[in-house]
């Protein structure tokens, strides 16, 4: 009987050791995998930067490039739900915002809403915003702007404001120099 209990105890200790070793090696394996994933992610990020630069040069040559940005000058102006942009009457983009994106805009973030190529001359920009105004009412604001594309990059920024005394959301256009 004592031999049996001795054997049982030995088996228990051995099993515990095997369990401990296997769990340690499992977590070490996962840890080393995580480190390798981090390295890969960093490499992919670096490659993404290179690709982004390349895309800018290949797809949007400076002389024909038009970029439209969006920012909020007044964070209280509107709880932004979506934006639609049409250029010369053709839909260019429809963007639906997530909470973190909305917060980023409210904290001074700038969104590159559209980048594309346009020939020289005048073009119509139609922007439509949908969202919730300060008085909790759902609002839809439409604005039309004329931009003139000439030599060099054309960069314009739509700025969302809510000027006093009515504090109604409004869009204005700012040109980047």
């Amino acid at each position: 009987m004592s031999d049996l209990s001795h054997l049982f105890r030995f088996w228990l200790v051995k099993s515990a050791l095997i369990l401990l070793l296997s769990s340690c090696s499992g977590s070490l394996w996962a840890e080393s995998l995580d480190q390798e994933i981090d390295t890969l992610k960093a490499d992919v990020a670096a490659l993404n930067q290179t690709l982004f630069e390349l895309e800018e040069e290949v797809l949007h040559p400076t002389d024909t490039q038009v970029a439209v940005y969006l920012s909020m000058a007044d964070p209280e102006a509107l709880v932004l739900e979506s934006v639609e942009l049409a250029i010369n009457g053709l839909p260019a983009i429809f963007y639906l915002y997530t909470d973190p994106e909305r917060q980023a805009l409210e904290q001074g973030g700038v969104q590159r809403l559209y980048v594309g190529n346009l020939p020289f001359g005048e073009h119509q920009l139609n922007a439509t915003l949908n969202g919730q105004a300060a008085n909790d009412h759902y609002v839809r604001r439409e604005a039309e702007f004329t931009i003139r594309k000439s030599q060099g990059k054309k960069q314009v920024q739509l700025v969302l404001t809510a000027p006093a005394p009515e504090f109604q959301p409004e869009l204005s256009l700012k040109e980047w120099q």
Binding site: A46, T62, T98, P100, E101, L105, G109, K153
Partner: peptide, 30 residues
């Protein structure tokens, strides 16, 4: 013809704003 390089880029403040939005949109590399 390919792009003329070195054209005007967004100002420093706007670049930081663009980075903030990209980060919120889940694009840290951008």
């Amino acid at each position: 013809a390919p792009a003329a390089l070195g054209a005007a880029q967004p100002g420093d403040e706007n670049r930081v704003g663009l980075a903030q939005f990209s980060l919120a949109a889940g694009a840290p590399a951008r």
